[in-house]
């Protein structure tokens, strides 16, 4: 027995149950110390799986500033590498997943 809607109308954002994180051979690694929190990777990411998170406070003279760094949601990252290409601080490196390393041996 399956349940279907009249006219194949779908509910919103049910794509979230599709975990595309296992698609790619590579995955991005963000070097937090290099990340300048500019958000370039977030705005480019085609899989909407990078967001800027607060990683502490920084003193700049008199003012305190929130330090933001990029964080990848690996559940959805397809490993396309776009973030690594657009990062102006070269803070994102693409690395081969372990399972693929195994095959190369």
């Amino acid at each position: 027995m399956i349940r279907i809607t009249p006219g194949a109308v779908s509910k919103p954002l049910e794509s979230l149950k599709v975990k595309t994180g296992d698609w790619g051979a590579e995955y991005p690694v963000i070097e937090e110390e290099k990340c300048i929190g500019c958000g370039e990777c977030e705005i480019f990411c085609p899989d909407l799986c990078i967001e800027l998170i607060e990683a502490g406070m920084e003193k700049k003279g008199e003012k305190e500033k929130i330090i933001r760094v990029a964080k990848v949601n690996y559940e959805y990252c397809k490993g396309c590498g776009t973030c690594s290409v657009v990062c102006p601080a070269e803070a994102i490196k693409m690395e081969l997943k372990d399972i693929y390393r195994g095959e190369l041996k």
Binding site: S15, V18, K19, T20, C49, N73, E75, C80
Partner: peptide
Amino acid sequence: GSGHGACP
């Protein structure tokens, strides 16, 4: 949202 089927 994420989880769409676009090519990497």
